[in-house]
Write a protein that binds this DNA or RNA. Structure first.
Lengths: 245, 245
DNA sequence: ATTGGAAATTGATTTGCATCAAGGAAACGG
DNA sequence: CCGTTTCCTTGATGCAAATCAATTTCCAAT
């Protein structure tokens, strides 16, 4: 599966300064709380980098020297067991912030699923900025709280939900994300492959595929070309996400 | 199963002022960053409350008006599905902070497993204190990061580990907690019942029990009266926690 | 000590999902 | 446009954990 950028620009060969003022995601959760002046300070230590699909951004255990904003593309966060079993802990879309859950080292690995562009911050610089910009730290704490709430939803999903409930929950969360971005809540592009979905939901590709088929057959969803799912009844989907009946 | 307090003091009939200076957990992760003066300010809006075993501290969806420090006892955090399936997202011991993952409402329910004592803070007051005490907010962010890293470990566990790996991971985390508190890393009291362990590990009580039996039979652990587990080889346990072989 | 009730263990059976194994359908490069 | 590759789907079978069903053990109160 190939994921070309819409605008197949030459890859930024190395990091280049990031003009935040002109950034496509300057209204992202992370940057939106900053004034123009603060944004300018942020620019001073922000660099754009790009990576191809399947490139690793960082690995679990690496020294956590950088934080990122995803400005374009799709990123997976994941953990591995020694024998290769993989669990994806989250997907990041453009506008999402990368690097909340870490101490000295990253607690998980991050890999580009599609080609991505990232805005990279030096960690020390960013933490230094917290001193003069406490509301940025407040925002970070807020983001961390939200992430934690999401993580707990995922814990419930993995610990107690059936395959069907898991997939419906997943589709529902994509729908909500789509809606938040101003797109349709009922016509949902699925930008990741079956294996990634499986590794996120604690299932296998086969089970994900079979469950998609079941949902299609019972008309809970409609799948068209390019991996676009249409949900005729969001209420129904929400019910199925909690009660596989 | 009854969980009496060692010191079966009368229950604090209602909330009473909390003298932080004399608090048994004043060196907890949360309070330890505060100076005596700051601790005094904290005291001004901190109240001690106590609850019996099985009492609910708050429920998912309740308006999140209070944050807590657990000063004594054991608390479970959990989420429920409509049909009653339960997933425990975490256990809190004395010294642990309760209330990080929430926005306007609590993202999970909290219930006392043993009788507990809590130090209760009004949320607005605490957030107000962040203004004058930014390092307290920094500490909160740190705690949130740690929680998030832990949540992701649990996601890996629930999504990809076998029953045996889950139980070994759990025992290992109890061992580490025990060690951090200055107790033995190899002689581990298990203060919660089989059902709570099952609801935490995404299993059933029967499977937890069977898996305990297997670990006993192969001499990976030793179980003595009062639910105390002895681990002769922590290295081995760590291996079993990632690779059920 | 005795007893009653809750919790834990163990056994028998079922089941949902994983695993193994082919086909079939898109997507890409030439 | 065609061939190659990769991804997706579907089918057959196996297995780890759930479910159903008794005991047995552990405690706390008498």
């Amino acid at each position: 599966m190939q994921y070309p950028l819409k605008d197949p620009i030459k890859r930024w060969s190395d990091s280049i300064p990031a003009p935040c003022a002109a950034c496509g995601v300057r209204d992202s959760v992370f940057c939106s709380v900053l004034s123009d002046q603060e944004l300018q300070r942020l620019s001073s230590f922000a660099f754009n980098v790009s990576q191809d699909a399947r490139e690793i951004i960082f690995s679990e255990g690496d020294s956590a020297d950088h934080l990122f904003n995803v400005t374009e593309g799709l990123v997976k966060l994941y953990k591995l067991l020694p024998d290769g079993r993989e669990q994806i802990t989250g997907f990041l879309f453009s506008g999402d912030f990368l690097g909340i859950a870490m101490n000295d080292t990253y607690a998980y690995s991050a890999e580009a699923i599609t080609p991505v562009r990232l805005c990279r911050f030096n960690r020390k610089d960013l933490e230094g900025m917290f001193q003069q910009t406490p509301h940025l730290e407040t925002r970070m704490l807020n983001m961390a709280s939200n992430e934690l709430a999401q993580a707990q939803d995922q814990i419930l999903l993995l610990g107690r939900k059936t395959a069907k409930e898991r997939l419906c929950s997943f589709l529902l969360s994509l729908s909500q994300r789509s809606e938040r971005r101003g797109d349709s809540a009922t016509v949902i592009p699925i930008p990741m492959g079956r294996e990634a979905i499986a590794d996120y939901l604690g299932l296998t590709t086969e089970t994900v595929s079979r469950t998609f088929s079941k949902l299609k057959k019972e008309n809970s969803i409609l799948v068209s070309k390019g991996g676009i799912v249409e949900v005729p009844d969001l209420e129904l989907l929400a019910t199925l996400a909690e009660d596989s009946s």
